[in-house]
Simulated scan of single mutants.
Amino acid sequence: MSSEASGTAEMTSWDEHTWDGRRYDEVTGPKQTTGGMTTAYDGDLAGTGEMRFLMAYPDDASCRSVGYEVVTGTLAGRAGTFVLEHVGGFRDGVADGTFTIVSAAGDLAGLTGTGSIRWPQDQPGRYTIEYHFA
Results as ranks from 00 to 15, higher is better:
His86Pro: 07
Phe90Met: 04
Met37Val: 11
Tyr24Ala: 15
Gly43Asn: 01
Val102Pro: 05
Gln121Met: 11
Leu84Tyr: 03
Ala76Ile: 03
Thr34Glu: 15
Asp96Glu: 14
Val70Asp: 15
Ser65His: 10
Gly113Asp: 04
Gly110Cys: 01
Asp122Thr: 00
Thr38Cys: 08
Phe82Tyr: 14
Gly80Asn: 10
Asp92Ser: 01
Arg52Ala: 12
Pro58Asn: 02
Val71Gln: 03
Met55Gly: 14
Ser3Trp: 15
His17Phe: 13
Arg23Trp: 09
Asp60Trp: 04
Thr38Gly: 11
Thr112Cys: 07
Ala134Glu: 14
Asp92Thr: 00
Thr100Cys: 04
Thr33Met: 04
Asp96Asn: 09
Arg23Phe: 11
Glu50Ser: 12
Phe99Lys: 05
Trp19Tyr: 11
Ser2Glu: 15
Gln32Pro: 06
His132Asn: 01
Arg52Asp: 11
Glu50Tyr: 06
Glu50Asp: 13
Thr114Glu: 15
Val102Leu: 03
Gly73Lys: 09
Leu108Cys: 02
Thr100Asn: 05
Trp19Ile: 08
Leu45Arg: 07
Gln32Val: 15
Thr39Leu: 13
Ser2Arg: 14
Gly97Ile: 01
Ser116Trp: 04
Val102Cys: 01
Gly35Pro: 06
Ala105Arg: 07
Phe90Gln: 01
Ala104Asn: 10
Trp14His: 01
Phe90Ile: 00
Phe82Ala: 03
Met11Phe: 13
Ala79Cys: 10
Thr72Leu: 06
Glu50Arg: 11
Arg23Leu: 11
Gly89Phe: 00
Gln121Asp: 14
Thr48Asp: 12
Leu108Pro: 04
Ser103Gly: 13
Gly88Asp: 10
Thr28Met: 08
Phe82Trp: 14
Ala134Trp: 07
Ala9Ser: 12
Phe133Arg: 04
Ser13Arg: 04
Asp107Arg: 08
Asp15Pro: 07
Arg91Asp: 10
Gly43Ala: 00
Thr8Met: 05
Gly7Pro: 08
Tyr127Leu: 00
Arg91Ser: 06
